[in-house]
Amino acid sequence: MLEIKNLHAKVDSFEILKGVDLEVNAGEVHSIMGPNASGKSTLAQVLTGRETYKVTAGEILYEGKNLLDMTPEVRACEGVFMAFQYPVEIPGVGSAYFLKAALNAIRKHHGIEEIDAMDFLALAKEKMKLLNIDEKLLNRSINEGFSGGEKKRNEIFQMAILEPKLCIMDETDSGLDIDAMKVVAKGVNALRSPERAIIIITHYQRLLKYIVPDFVHVLVDGRIVKSGGKDLALELEDKGYAWVEEEAVKSK
């Protein structure tokens, strides 16, 4: 589904990604781990097309198409979704209204007729139950006055409604208590399917206890320096990132 080859990217004049290679297939869950400032979030931003990040070399193929040629909204319509680390507030815009607009934009892109308000509400209620989200949230402005946990759960709720093919979760676990994390994990697990790929970006192993990945990659200084199965996450938890970094230096 996703093929990243020798990806280089910079912000302003700082090169952050220095040759990332990664292949993700449908049905797989990948976790990208790494210390602060290793480029994890940059990778997520580049995949979704944030304009402040400039790709200087390499390519990204998404379902065989050049992802870098697509605008952020086209990428979204094609099924790329990011659960934001810091979901932004949009005052005065109701969550339901926003999400319905998003869903209809995606449906229009695929030539499917727009969903009407009644059907949308039924769909939303069904998904909210799954994520233990209070229905009142639909009437509130997007993320305005939401607690940290509500914001993150709302991101997963949006993901459940929009049914993307590639889900990128940017440090979704940061700022969550254990109960909220379980709810989020339950939601994500419910979305696991053979047609969908999920990339989980995280510092810590703790979320991976609840969402068990198929692959774990360690990103250090803009490169993936080690890849492995779910046990790699446990090893990292034990030993920290330093040993991987040392290993990476040795292998150079």
Binding site: T71, E73, A76, F84, P87, P91, V93, A101, I106
Partner: peptide, 24 residues
């Protein structure tokens, strides 16, 4: 820019994102 990007990442076009934010 972050509000615009948030909308666009959900599939909403630039035009629609502006009118959404403004009407909010």
């Amino acid at each position: 820019e972050d509000q615009m990007f948030y909308c666009k990442q959900r599939g909403i076009s630039t035009e629609d994102a502006i009118s959404l934010i403004v009407s909010g």
